[in-house]
């Protein structure tokens, strides 16, 4: 048992989140996958903080949480207004930005 286990777990969680972003179409679920990715990164930061013997990593993770909170608030508001105009929360329906 070593810290490597935490890190590998974090990598796997991150990948699951990334794949989720790619395969899910519900914008809210996509958002949750992004949150999962952020959380896995936080786990990495906390683990490295422990390995290096400083709390800087924890502070970083703290900032990540704050920023994630802000991001979620704005992102969900955007999903709301998107849903209001298009009656859909599917990311595939917002495909106007193309050639």
């Amino acid at each position: 048992m070593s810290l490597t286990h935490y890190l590998v777990l974090a990598a796997i969680l991150f990948t699951i989140g990334a794949v989720g972003v790619l395969v899910r179409r519900n914008a809210i679920v996509v958002f949750m996958c992004v949150e999962l990715m952020l959380n896995s990164v936080n786990l990495t930061l906390v683990t490295f903080a422990r390995a290096s013997g400083t709390v800087d990593g924890q502070v970083m993770a703290f900032f990540v949480m704050v920023v994630a909170a802000a991001e979620v608030v704005v992102g969900l508001a955007i999903i709301m207004s998107l849903f209001r105009t298009r009656r859909s929360a599917s990311v595939d329906d917002a495909n106007l930005l193309k050639y």
């Binding site: 990334a18 972003v21 790619l22 179409r25 595939d92 495909n95 050639y99």
Partner: peptide
Amino acid sequence: SSRLGRTQTGFVRSYALSML
């Protein structure tokens, strides 16, 4: 460029796939 433009499908998930 118009052929390359076809890759710009407008689907966020395609873009995310290329990022991954």
